[in-house]
Each structure stands twice: as C-alpha cells, then as structure tokens.
C-alpha cells in the first residue's frame, strides 16, 4: 500500500472544515484498518474524526453506491470523496435524478490509478483529474494518453470465439453464480428498491442458482446497465465466485460507443442511449 500523504492531509483538513462549518452532515471517504488488504468506505460525521480518512492506491470501492441510501441521505448534505471514475457514476445518478447536485459536496481527488498491478479501469482511465467537483484536494496529476484499443479488451478476447465456444465459456462461468447478488448491491447504478429478480408477479427471473436462472439474471443485470454502466468494475471485484462480469459490461459499453459514440457518465447532462433515438440509427438485421 502506498499512502498518498499530501492528498490524505488535504483531504482530512477539507473534511474537517466542511464538517465544522456545518456545510455537510457526513463525509464519505476511505479508511484503513491495520493489516487490511484494502481501504474501505468510512463515514465521518465529526470534524475530529476526519484524521482517520486516508487516500492510497487501494481505494477500490466506488463510494457513489451509498448516495441513493435513505440512511445516508438522512444525515444531511453529503460530502463525498470522488476519484474520476467515481464521478462518472455520480454523473449517471444525477442525470437519472436519483440525487440532487445541491445535496452533494464533491471532494475530487486526482488519482493515478488503483491497485498493483493497476486495475483494468485505471489503465484506460481518462479521468485522472475529476472535473466539475466542488473542490479538489491535492495537485493535478498528469493524464497519460490511453490506448483506446485496450478499453474493451476483455470483451474483445471473447468476440473472436465462435458462438459455441462463447456459450461453452459463459455457461461454465454462469453456472458458478450462487445468486448472492453482490454484483447488484455493490453497483452504484443498481439502486432499485426492489430488483426485478425479487419481483414475483410475474416471476421474470428464476431465483434458483441453476443455469436457467443464472442466465436470466445475468442477462437482465447486463441489460439494465447497458448505456448506464460506467465501467467501475465493482461487480467483478465483489463477485465471490470470480465471474468475469466486467467483460459483459465492456461488451455493452463497446456497442454504445460504436453505435452511438456514447460513453456513460462523462456529464450529468448527457442523454442515455436508451432514453433517446435518432431516425437514422443503425438497423442491421431487421426484417
């Protein structure tokens, strides 16, 4: 673990100031337990606790997942530590009117990437310096040029395979699913109070962890995130069965990119592909 001490110090003082001036009721950031392998989400409500915040290269979690929660909202205005990638999720929450911009104080953190080796999302990240935050702690970092061909590499590695090979791969992967719903609960954009898999009249998705139910669940999950997913990769990280969910999301993001030139979460004002249309949209394969 490498603690970024400059950012950590500025972060602590910014959080303490926001809390002591009453500008926010809570600051959501990262903390670190001794001996822990990752930094974890932390809720700070008193200025004197701000010194427990930390920013290092293991701040994997996407804190935006907490924003739609009633318990968190009831604490008042929310200060939230955001990396560029987290900001994309918040932009989607804003464009979907799940949270109001006025209820948030965005504490941007320039980030050169998380994990060692770097997470995939970090190696293709073009948001090292979050834009549109209320404040930025730490100095801007250099934004390296990214290799856009790598953006969808996990999906691309499967695109080359035949239909039968893909089914063999995915039926094997999806058979592992135990339906714990960690992928859903960790996703900042899966904020439905009652998920489609929990609906019983009709029962769209079999809740049993057999392949039939697992395929239906994973198709539904992927499709509900199409044009919305910002590629934070939390679902794949959370999956206790190591199912490569990121590849599915990449595939759908790639389609949105190729068909509509759309990248989700770059601005709170964007229109999601499935909420709009063009008369001359691609129409291949319609009879």
């Amino acid at each position: 673990m490498n603690v970024n001490s400059t950012v950590t110090e500025s972060l602590q003082s910014a959080a303490a100031t926001l809390l002591s001036e009453g500008k926010v009721g809570v600051v959501i950031g990262y903390g670190r337990d001794a001996g822990a392998s990752i930094s974890h989400p932390m809720f700070i409500r008193k200025p004197e606790d701000a010194e427990r915040l930390v920013f290092d290269d293991c701040c994997f979690g996407n804190l935006a997942v907490y924003l739609p929660r009633d318990k968190v909202r009831s604490m008042g205005k929310i200060g939230i530590v955001v990396k560029g990638c987290d900001l994309r999720a918040i932009n989607v929450l804003l464009r979907e009117h799940v949270v109001k911009r006025d209820d948030l104080v965005l504490i941007g953190v320039p980030c050169t990437g998380q994990g060692d080796p770097l997470l995939h999302k970090c190696s293709v990240c073009e948001q090292h310096n979050p834009e549109g935050c209320d404040m930025v702690v730490g100095d801007p970092v250099e934004q390296p040029a990214i290799d856009a061909t790598q953006r969808y590499k996990d999906a691309a590695s499967l695109d080359d395979k035949s239909l039968e090979e893909r089914w063999a791969f995915w039926s094997g992967q999806l058979s592992k699913c135990i339906r714990c719903y960690a992928c859903r609960n960790v996703c900042p954009l899966c904020y439905c109070k009652r998920c489609i898999t929990e609906k019983t009249i009709p029962q769209w998705i079999d809740t049993s962890a057999h392949l039939r139910g697992n395929v239906a669940w994973n198709v539904a999950r992927a499709f509900h995130l199409t044009g919305r997913c910002v590629g934070c990769g939390e679902c794949e990280r959370a999956c206790p069965m190591d199912i490569p969910l990121g590849a599915i999301n990449q595939k759908m993001a790639q389609l949105m990119d190729e068909w509509y030139g759309f990248h989700s979460g770059l601005s709170p004002d964007e229109k999601a592909p499935f909420t709009t249309f063009k008369v001359d949209d691609p129409e291949t394969g319609i009879l």
Binding site: V215, V219, G227, K251, W259, F274, D281, E283
Partner: peptide, 19 residues
C-alpha cells in the same frame, strides 16, 4: 425507435453470451 435501439443491443448481448 426505442425498440430498435434496445432490441438490437439485446441481440448483441445474446450473441456475446453464445445464445
């Protein structure tokens, strides 16, 4: 028009899964 966007994307998703 909305159906067109959704259903074509869905067909690609099916294909990706090997269905």
């Amino acid at each position: 028009y909305h159906a067109r966007r959704k259903l074509l994307a869905f067909r690609e998703l099916m294909t990706f899964f090997g269905i």
